[in-house]
Design a protein around this nucleic acid. Structure first.
Lengths: 213, 213, 213, 213
DNA sequence: TATGAATGAGCCTTCATTCAT
DNA sequence: AATGAATGAAGGCTCATTCAT
């Protein structure tokens, strides 16, 4: 579960310190990226001594990996809780779209993290073994839903689950991730709740519209 | 046209130096981000003296702005050359989707740049006056195409051009931008020409599928 | 007491490091001025890491202010210890003149510092709140002495204490401050103890001669 | 007459350029000192190309020497024009005091230059042969005046001309040179014409008061 | 005579990391 | 378990000076 750490905290107090560092690091990394993040700042935000950061996480890069894993795990946890497998296909897809859009909107720091990690060509994620494992159940579910929809005649044939999932995530991720440049260019307030609601409706419309047989 | 520069190059030789710096900066910034980029490295790649970088662009941040503007201008130039306004609506949309997908695939550095700039909440793009101006003709064209499609009965009514454009870009951008984390999770191969072709076909299918009346 | 510092040294060891930096800075600044001083050189002279300089003093300019304040405080401390307020007026004035001449001769670095600061139009001293406060007791004392001398009939009437103090300092300060150009012009020897003694006698003679009723 | 220059300007146009550089350098050096002065800035102020500066003056340090010599020569020229040798002794001394005070007030850049040069222990002035020669006639005159005053019974015996001259200059020089720190400390407007007038009167009073037999 | 372009060394400052307690 | 102090490497930026025309 943990990134390689030199010291495994045993006491509750130590565990609390570790968690505070992790939270602070998430905030700092999401705001400034890996290169732009400051170790001093993370320690300060965490109300911890810098030395603790090194004791628990090894170094800045390992801390990055730990943050990344925690972020992925958090999202997948919520996503799994949806249990869309049992819903009618259209409803299942709509929920998946809405969840992704909303999760992304609620967690811009996750989006920022992913973008940064891609800048590094996923070099740090590659160190992780746990993350890929999180996604295979999701794909299974999605595949099932799409097949069921096709069998019931409400979805087009042969929609690829991986493409579908990438599209679903893309519709929200790009909107949130690039919100600021988009706002600068189109001059609109994409952060407003109303705008997010509109994007949510549009995204559902696109996915279900596309899936129509 | 240019970012605020302290020295305006007058000779062709100086102009060439300035361009080499700009190119080198694009590569370095795209690979490492603003904070991660090294000014020394940019100068070295450009085969120029570091001092020239400051003479022509002021400082690292202003250079970032200049790179950003150049990148946007380059994409919009190509996009404008499509002249989709005169095509049949479905063909116009398909071309726009394909172009964006392909441009994005051909220019991952542009994608990286945008992601970084969004990390900065578009603070640097906000300094630019030229970029927003590039996009209003595009929106006009898109609006026209959607209306014409609706009038001809081949498109659904009331598709919003801004939402549509964001979706079009999102389908390719997210795929390319997050290619590495996606590969790490779903297994590799997203960079292959065949995979990009598949994504291209999927994207066109999604947009046209959605737009069906 | 201290210039604005980022890190307040808590241990005696840290305090010692801070003091060594301050001493080294005084020497370097006095020799080369603010612009000419080298931060590396200061750290090296102090036997400290350059980073500590920034931790304790913020930056070069703030270090300059700290040095300035320490220098003023040091001089005023010695001057205050003279307790001239209780002496007969002529004796009090003579002591003040002698002290200033001798202090200046013993501390050419203080003279150099002041000259540099005036080049900056006292922009850095203006940041200090403590220095002006050091001088108001002195002025009070001087005013009292001059009045008492006048009342006792040994001094001329209505000698202005501020003008008097400026003159007292000027007689020694200019001699020491411009010693090198004066030596170049009038021939050498102004640094010799005998020459300083002669200047001391002359200065006392000028001030007491002037004050005669 | 000139500092060592690589190219001796022959045309009037070149001579004009040279003079503009010299003037610009005086202003820049006086404001920022030798180390703080910027060669670019001097060239810009002079409306000249930087290369010309090097052609005419060799380098920054040689330019400093040239500026220094010009400044000394200028002052001595005015001082010589006083022709105090023929005046009644008290009047002669008063004029000398007033002139020095006023010249200094009118030319703070000269004061700044001297202070800087003393920071360098007059290393650059030592290169000059012309400056010392300027001062021997002045000393002769002063010696004569003091002797005459003593002989006529209006001055004290055995006043040393060198000490006297240093004191005369000191009274004004220190006031002007340290005007900014003094203002910061005593909180008064020493730059005002009224203040300078008061200082002038005080200075005359001090010198003549002292010289009384 | 004059100029735009270029250079290399060096300076101030910051950072991730480790030491000693 | 925690902390204050220290470090060395490097990064952004500036400067005096020279080249080429």
């Amino acid at each position: 579960m943990d990134a390689p750490s030199r010291t495994i905290p045993r006491s509750p107090r130590a565990e609390a310190t570790r968690q505070r560092i992790l939270d602070a690091a998430l905030a700092e990394f999401a705001t400034h990226g890996l290169a732009g993040a400051r170790v001093d700042e993370i320690a300060a935000r965490a109300g911890a001594n810098k030395r603790m950061l090194y004791a628990y996480f090894g170094n800045k890069e390992d801390l990055w990996v730990a943050v990344l894993e925690a972020a992925y795990a958090h999202k997948r946890n919520e996503e799994r809780a949806l249990e869309v497998g049992d819903l009618p296909p259209a409803e299942a897809m709509a929920r998946l779209v809405r969840f992704n859009l909303r999760y992304t909107a609620r967690h811009p720091e996750f989006v920022a993290l992913l973008n940064q990690e891609n800048l590094h060509r996923a070099a740090y994620l590659a160190r992780s073994e746990q993350v890929p494992a999180l996604y295979s159940p999701l794909l299974d579910t999605l595949r099932t839903v799409l097949r069921r929809g096709a069998a019931e005649g409400v979805f087009r044939q042969e929609a690829d689950p991986v493409q579908a999932y990438i599209t679903i995530v893309a519709l929200g991720h790009f909107y949130i991730s690039n919100m600021h440049t988009l706002s600068a260019i189109f001059g609109t307030g994409l952060e407003a709740e109303a705008a997010i609601e509109a994007r949510e409706a549009h995204s559902v419309e696109v996915v279900l519209g596309w899936l129509r047989p």
